[in-house]
Amino acid sequence: MELLWFALFAVLLAGYFALEGFDLGVGLLLPVLGRTVERRDRMVAAIAPFVLANEVWLVAVAGTLFGVYPMLEGEVLFGLYPLVVAMLLAWVVRDAGLWFRRRVGGPGWRRFWDALIALGSLWLSAGWGMALYGAATGFTSSPMHPVGLLLGVVVTLLFAFHGWTFLGWRDPALTGAARSGRVLALTGAVAALPALGLLAGAMGYLLDHSAPPATLNVLSLMVLPFAPLMVAAQVWVWRTFRPGKGADRIPSFF
């Protein structure tokens, strides 16, 4: 049972990196590839239908952390207190940018929120690299350690590359290079590598600190029946918004 929940936890965290990775990547690329409002609209429209379905993977990671690893939840979040607060604020600002950018017509308004999307994406991507480093050292070393900062740069670059591939898959005119779904899956896997590395290293520790069997049984009984519905809903998102079905159609809500 501990193994099953570890696998689920790993899938959720790696899935977050592979999926939200391209949303953050496209956010990072906004100032680079989106010099005009029209291009930025198209870039945001490309990720828009996926963002809500992607970012929620991290919400699920945190919930699993609380339910399955209650003894570690506080340790992890408190161990990285200033970083977690900063990353939360970055996430909030990025989301607010997406929800607000088209609510008022003026170009200045949209430029402002687009800048916040890019800034929030950058902050959050770099934060992930530092957080992974902090967690890998058991919170004994500051995430601002040069290696932590370097990992922040690496994760940011991986997400940006993944975002670029995503645009090439969904709206190739934006990058000038079409990418297949297979390549997108591959860059997703690469974007998830840092998270998978940490999970592999922490596997034994996590298994030892799982909640007692009674709690895990209840969680399994409550969660597993919904798993097919959750998978189906995610698959439905990808089927509905795959390229060729009006992916180049704007406006979108975001």
């Binding site: 699920a60 919930g63 699993t64 609380f66 399955v68 009674a214 709690t215 969680l219 409550m222 969660v223």
Partner: peptide, 14 residues
């Protein structure tokens, strides 16, 4: 956490 975490996990995870 073994008790309180379960409903919280249900909320976020499902």
């Amino acid at each position: 956490g073994d008790v309180f975490g379960a409903p919280l996990a249900m909320e976020t995870l499902v």
